[in-house]
Design a protein around this nucleic acid. Structure first.
Lengths: 352, 352
DNA sequence: CATATCAATTAGAACGATCTAAATTCGATC
DNA sequence: GATCGAATTTAGATCGTTCTAATTGATATG
């Protein structure tokens, strides 16, 4: 209430009001045992009365510390990363840090700008989920050598940064083995860009499983597309241009799988019935799709918390070799991988 | 590279290296025409050489300004809000501000904590999408009278804050009228909590349309549930416990509608065929569901940009009456509202 | 009573930038 | 060469905190 123009109330104002020195007020703020109980009470009264709010920026300046962590995300509109961001923020907040958000929209140049701008706010550390086409050396330049950086999800060779990622290779192998076990032999790998590290790794896992089963993949079973529903739906046809056509597909991720299901439906194939497929990520809508999607659960929210924890640990125990953390993923079997032509009953099986 | 322990390089270091005063370097930083071209060049060289990075916190302290805006979001894992956040961040970044993120997970008490923590970082303004059960006076206390606040999406009576929201009432009326036009008379309103402002407004619009058509809604056509897919699927049965049962439903939002579609499928009803329904928000998966969902487009990303713009405008032209902005929503007709028992062909109709 | 000990408080210099007001340099002019 | 005005540069205070090193009282000890 009252004069909206008035300048902020500071430690000095409180000191004056409570007739103590600025230093004492500062001690009260930080719960120092040095200050007498009566004094503390008096000071605290005045703080409340004047509506004091701590200026952490000033404190950080003096103490040469930082109370923020920058979070740079390639695609916030992807639920996987949104959940990840929520997890990061949750854990950082619990540790008393504030999250500086920066979205890059998959643009490497915006990523540079965002990093530059965030660095000016002196984050204690950076968590980066790199945009496509990121250049490690330019990132290194923007970030400098003194701010710890944790790279998430997409490998970025070069500098000594910490890394947190999924076990893409094993995940894709599990999915492929699952489809093999259902009797499929002609299995495609659908979606993703082969120049992204996660896509490469997933393709390796796919190849591992096929090789172990003695299956040689046809080149037309490897279809690239941007990892979005729309792109995937549009690329569906590429699977069926040349014999032998696949009867199943391991998809790069859930978005792609959902798009593929749509594309299949449009050409009159019933996913999970005429054609089996799997996803990757286990985003929430995968449990809800028709049919529900078999996929690999990565629990992005937990990954977010984990990323925050890694970064906080690095801040505590400062330097040391950079750390690669690869988290296992779990195969979640649902109906989309149900059967081939030789398949199982379409309905029933309510509970899971 | 080199000694990772070395302290940050500051204006003083540059000044010393370039043999000018700190003041001159500061002028160079801000592109002042006062400084001689030669001097400028020399200073800039040394800035690059030493790897200088601007300390915006120190500058803000001195100038009594802020270069950040706090964004407090009730539910980041809802794509609607994730998109909103992306839009806010995009527009803020373009204006040279940085986004301080705070997630509340729909908890009013966490919201208080988050607001308190963010305030300590002196944001220039706050954009708040309130958690359920928010208390306006406690928020007012946490935020203080000097930081402009924009409330998004859920009305919060009380203090003089700016507000940005959707035209919920008209949106729901449009959806209801659309279903009436398809021949439905027994139309339910499904989902949401009646104590949230947006749900109340949508119910009003629903009531407007029914009243205009001379239909009196049965009490069992009003079903509450939390606005998540899971809850909605679980509550589906509530629509069919007592005659007359509805043949269509206006859903509180897309998440609820998608959940209801699942619930319907489980009881053997084909949404868009045996039962018509509409959503609200037009989240990306609504276009992709089977059948695609008729809904009201709110373009959350554009809303985010708009919220940022409103807040920036408020910062420029400082005080003035608080402003209510209600944005229209657009009915997007897809197949989920296709027909009743007397319905249309289920397939074909590829292009839209 | 002088002095050592302890608890409580404080003056004043930081932190890294900006800003005001004044000082310095440089030609040009008389 | 002195003088003036414009062009450049700078010293030093300042923003709101924290920290170091003293300072102040009070109580206890010899």
């Amino acid at each position: 209430m009252s004069d909206s123009r008035r300048r902020r109330v500071t430690l000095n104002d409180i000191a004056e009001a409570a007739r103590v020195s600025r230093a004492t007020v500062s001690l009260v703020l930080r719960d120092s045992p040095l200050v007498h109980a009566d004094t503390r009470a008096r000071v605290e009264t005045h703080m409340r009365k004047l509506g004091y709010v701590y200026n952490r920026a000033a404190a950080n300046l003096r103490r040469q510390t930082s109370s923020s962590v920058a979070l740079v995300i390639n695609d916030l509109s992807n639920p996987f990363f949104a959940e990840f961001a929520a997890g990061v923020d949750e854990a950082l907040a619990a540790a008393g840090y504030v999250t500086l958000l920066g979205g890059t929209g998959e643009s490497a140049s915006r990523q540079q700008a965002v990093l530059g701008s965030l660095m000016e706010h002196q984050p204690a550390a950076i968590i980066l989920s790199p945009a496509e086409g990121s250049d490690a050396s330019r990132i290194a330049h923007a970030v400098g050598a003194h701010t710890p950086l944790l790279v998430f999800n997409r490998e970025l060779e070069g500098a000594g940064w910490d890394f947190l990622g999924l076990d893409n290779r094993r995940g894709a192998r599990l999915a492929t083995e699952h489809l093999l076990k259902q009797g499929h032999r002609r299995i495609a790998f659908f979606g993703g860009h082969a120049d992204s590290s996660s896509c490469r790794e997933r393709r390796l896992g796919y190849g591992d499983a096929l090789a172990a089963a003695g299956v040689t993949p046809e080149p037309q079973w490897l279809v690239e597309c941007a990892p979005t529903r729309l792109e995937a739906a549009a690329q569906t046809g590429a699977l069926f241009v040349r014999d032998p056509v696949p009867t199943a597909a391991v998809c790069y991720n859930d978005a792609v799988a959902l798009g593929l299901m749509l594309g299949l439906a449009r050409r009159g194939r019933r996913p999970g019935h005429d054609f089996a497929l799997t996803g990757f990520d286990d985003i929430p809508e995968s449990a809800m799709s028709v049919p529900p999607l078999t996929t690999l659960a990565a629990d992005p929210r937990a990954r977010g918390r984990q990323a925050a924890a890694l970064v906080l640990a690095r801040l505590k125990h400062a330097p040391g070799a950079h750390k690669r953390t690869i988290v296992p993923v779990q195969l979640v079997v649902r109906e989309s991988s149900g059967g081939a032509d030789t398949a199982a009953p379409p309905s029933a099986r309510k509970r899971r």
